[in-house]
Design a protein around this nucleic acid. Sequence first.
DNA 1: AGACAATAATTGACATGACATCGATGTCGT
DNA 2: ACGACATCGATGTCATGTCAATTATTGTCT
Lengths: 154, 154
Amino acid sequence: MRPAEELRYLILAAQREGNRILARRLQPLGVTPSQAEVLRLLLDRGPLTLKGLGELLVCESGGSPSRLVDRLHAAGLVHREVPAHDRRQVTLTLTDAGRRVAEEVAGVEEDLHARIESAAQGRALDEATAFLRSFVAGLPSGDAVARRRGTASG
Amino acid sequence: MRPAEELRYLILAAQREGNRILARRLQPLGVTPSQAEVLRLLLDRGPLTLKGLGELLVCESGGSPSRLVDRLHAAGLVHREVPAHDRRQVTLTLTDAGRRVAEEVAGVEEDLHARIESAAQGRALDEATAFLRSFVAGLPSGDAVARRRGTASG
DNA sequence: AGACAATAATTGACATGACATCGATGTCGT
DNA sequence: ACGACATCGATGTCATGTCAATTATTGTCT
């Protein structure tokens, strides 16, 4: 098996398994991994428009995450408001319930990050990080990660 | 941003972008990345049952890939046969058309692998590979990669 | 003002993925 | 033989993801 091919499948496998682990841990909170990413972004970066949110999301890298936000709104976790100065945009905020869930999500993520670091077992993650940064540079979801690395939390 | 968190999102981003690149390149062939994985496995590893295929697939790591194969069968790329000795098992083979497409898929994958190696830029991929192997070890799709590494091609 | 391009979000269509459940079929113990 | 159990696939349901087309609204140019 060519090294690049194995790496490609390992990235696919890691994403799938990481997502499954996260999904199971998030299940008691009633949210999916994608929904959790939205909640965390709204918690850390205050009000966002759908477009602004889309530029920070790694999941749902393309178009606008309307349907993703729809479910969070239906669940009472996200508040939507149409500002008067531009009725094309939608301003998203966490409700009180949404903020509570978002904070629990942060705890769940801590566990997963600990598992990632334990899998590293002293190996330097810098090389892997640099490689992946290079691979996704200039692509939509790569830019999303870069934007989130740029500022405070996220 | 915590290193493990960035790495987590980079893996997600790399998987998404890699999949999009592959999907665009496969579009002229009329197959999706997941379908391409099935075709390649059938090309390299002769007849497979649905269960056997499922154990080698990294995508669709869970249950049985019935619906995935359904579309390939509907497209005339995969032949299904029910052996007499155990009518529970379905034997999958490539049709002639399926073999032609599978061979073209192999060429498309070469391009993507070249792009991966170019993103590596001399960086050692061994560390990244070892880290990801460790992370997915013992999990379904991690085992699938290991099984494929174990034998001849794939 | 009026035509027209640009922007933001929604929606439709299609294929995955994950999980649970169901039906058919073999196997095995008695 | 027969009934419990295991195995394999198929199917239902829900939530993503991706792309393209549509709608509503705003900015711009003449």
